[in-house]
């Protein structure tokens, strides 16, 4: 069992630790998920949206609603597994303490990734009622957001963890935040359809930007309109999650086991 990947039920112990720490400050943690969609829907949906009659046959608010969920899922997991994981790893030496117990380094990192995904789900769950009240998502298909947020959350958690594993210092994490997350936030079919851009940018977006696929999947849930494209995106997300999780665990092991 020690060969390759010694991952067992013990990953949940790491997850439980992070949940325990999260719940100690739950009040602060629960406010942004409520506030953020309200701010975006007011500013972009009502404000910008009043100049736009329809995007791809739906109101602007309904068009950006799935993007808001996707971005929240991305940010929750990515920032949990970059800055927060880095603090736990480097400053608090939490991982060092854990690997001196029966936990393996693989379990510690896998637990961190699961926790990152959980942050995504928590965010999505808390946003959900706000979006319902604004009437911008359809039921019951939108409930599919929750299981999908686990997968998408894992993807962004693993992506973040790869950077955490190689960054020389906490400031180094600013690079992926600005150079990857910000462009992804804008160019993934979030606030305007990707089809408006030159086709080579569309190709690049769907080849490399996880958020483009996540938005496409979640949009089909909230608008209750399925298309075959979605299956490709689902497969892309699943594949990328497996690859990036494996890489992130390997890189972390390389960094911490010396």
């Amino acid at each position: 069992m020690h060969l390759g990947f010694p991952v067992s039920y013990r990953v949940w112990k790491v997850w439980r630790r992070n949940l325990g720490s999260f719940m100690r400050t739950w009040k602060v943690n629960f406010i942004p998920p409520f506030l953020e969609p309200i701010l975006y829907l007011l500013a972009l949906g009502l404000g910008v949206g009043s100049f736009i009659t329809e995007v791809n046959g739906v109101s602007y608010s309904r068009f950006i609603a799935p993007a808001l969920v996707s971005i929240a899922v991305m940010n929750a997991a990515f920032f949990e597994c970059t800055y927060s994981s880095y603090v736990r790893m480097y400053y608090q030496k939490t991982f060092d303490a854990m690997i001196a117990t029966p936990l393996s380094i693989e379990e510690v990192i896998a637990g961190e990734l699961l926790w990152g995904a959980t942050r995504s789900v928590i965010y999505a769950v808390l946003m959900f009622p706000v979006l319902l009240v604004f009437g911008v998502i359809d039921l019951p298909s939108s409930f599919l957001i929750f299981p999908f947020a686990v997968l998408a959350g894992l993807l962004f958690a693993a992506l973040g963890m790869c950077f955490t594993a190689i960054t020389p210092s906490i400031d180094g994490l600013n690079y992926p935040s600005f150079l990857l997350i910000t462009p992804m936030f804008l160019f993934s079919g979030t606030f305007f359809p990707l089809s408006l851009l030159p086709s080579f940018i569309q190709v690049i977006a769907f080849a490399f930007l996880p958020l483009a696929h996540v938005v496409r999947v979640i949009r089909c849930f909230t608008l209750n309109s399925f298309s075959p494209d979605v299956l490709i995106s689902l497969a892309w997300v699943l594949g990328a999650t497996l690859v990036l999780s494996t890489i992130s665990i390997r890189l972390m092991k390389k960094r911490l086991i010396v």
């Binding site: 630790r17 325990g20 720490s21 100690r24 608090q92 030496k93 939490t94 060092d96 303490a97 001196a100």
Partner: peptide, 11 residues
Amino acid sequence: VPQESNLDPDF
């Protein structure tokens, strides 16, 4: 007991 303290400050 490690040389460098790694007590969990979150609890």
